[in-house]
């Protein structure tokens, strides 16, 4: 191994250790990451990215493992990014998704990376999309992006994935849950996992009904797929549904769809980094606390701050240095 060889060059010749290190750079906000990704950028965009999201315990990891297994039998290579939550108190995390993906560990056509959410609240880690870019450049044909167990309003996966698979399971709410705004609306494919359990048929019916009633005007009809990842049932159906969605998106114009998502990624990235600069260790907390102690109202402080920040943004970049 040439010590001066860049990570990008090593990734281009299939070095998995370099791939792993580059994902770490993305996670750590390492200043060297941007240049390496730029070097790889022409190779990004060949993979199909399926996001897998749903409530805790719905069986996301088990399903991802099964999807990867069957994709391999279809001759595809698979990169997996699995996100678990970081503790809001200690910043630590226990990353346990890959325990369910044990059988894939030694397959050279699979690469699994666990990621802690590190303070992101949208169900992904800040670096998740970048990790997908790196896996894409490395040459994996299918990328599976598993979110943390989500509630009803974590949608970051929408902008990071080409196809969003929402996994639900019976026994976790009735038809009214299916009618609420939120998770269901971001789904391109709905999977009822654990479909051999009581209540599955009812859930499938409720979801099918909800999809038909609510999304009649959409060009893509969201399929409701029954599966049981634990017993390897319905996995082909899920992959076929993803493939059908892919064909639909490609027919509608893939480049435009991806560009819309990239705009959102840039927006996320900027607002998160801005928030950290404003409220992180060297941020404004003490100043705001002092103003509050002087008797100012939260509303007035916020208005003044916003004014100050917007004025700062209006200045040319050079002047701020």
């Amino acid at each position: 191994m040439n010590a001066t060889e860049t990570l990008a060059a090593r990734i281009e010749r299939g070095d998995r250790t370099a791939l792993a290190r580059m994902i770490s750079w993305a996670e750590n906000g390492d200043p060297r990451f941007a240049a390496e990704l730029n070097a790889l950028w022409p190779k990004v965009g060949r993979a199909w990215r399926a996001g897998v999201t749903g409530p805790p315990g719905a069986g996301k990891s088990t399903l991802v493992n099964e999807l990867a297994r069957v994709e391999r039998t279809r001759g595809k290579t698979v990169g997996i990014v699995a996100v678990d939550p970081s503790s809001p108190f200690t910043g630590g995390a226990l990353l346990g998704d890959r325990i369910r993906m044990d059988d894939r560990t030694l397959d050279p056509g699979v690469f699994i990376r666990s990621m802690a959410s590190r303070g992101s609240h949208g169900g992904l880690a800040r670096a998740a999309a970048s990790a997908c870019d790196v896996l894409d450049a490395f040459g994996f044909g299918t990328i599976l992006l598993e979110t943390v167990g989500v509630g009803q309003a974590e949608y970051d996966v929408l902008d990071a994935a080409d196809t969003v698979v929402v996994v639900l399971c019976p026994g976790a709410g009735d038809g009214i849950q299916a009618m609420k705004a939120g998770l269901l609306e971001v789904a391109d494919v709905l999977v009822v996992n654990k479909s051999d359990m009581p209540g599955a048929e009812r859930l499938i019916n409720d979801l099918t009904e909800a999809v038909h009633v609510r999304f009649t005007k959409r060009a893509w009809q969201v399929p409701v797929v029954a599966a049981s990842a634990g017993t390897s049932k319905g996995i082909d159906d899920v992959l076929d549904a993803i493939a059908a969605h892919r064909a639909h998106v490609e027919a509608q114009g893939l480049e435009a769809a991806r560009r819309r998502k990239r705009v959102e990624q840039v927006r996320h990235s900027v607002s998160e980094q801005l928030a950290e600069r404003l409220w992180g260790p060297a941020g404004l907390r003490e100043r705001v606390a002092a103003q509050l102690a002087e008797g100012a109202s939260p509303h007035a402080i916020a208005a003044a701050l916003l004014e100050e920040i917007t004025r700062g943004l209006a200045k040319p970049a050079e002047a701020r240095r």
């Binding site: 200690t90 995390a93 044990d102």
Partner: peptide
Amino acid sequence: LRDHGMEVIYTGLHQTPEAIAEIAAQED
């Protein structure tokens, strides 16, 4: 270790040395 702010990946039981090393490499 998690409670001390670290990110911990647990492999589960019955791992071969190859699997442990491969996981360590993928997870950097």
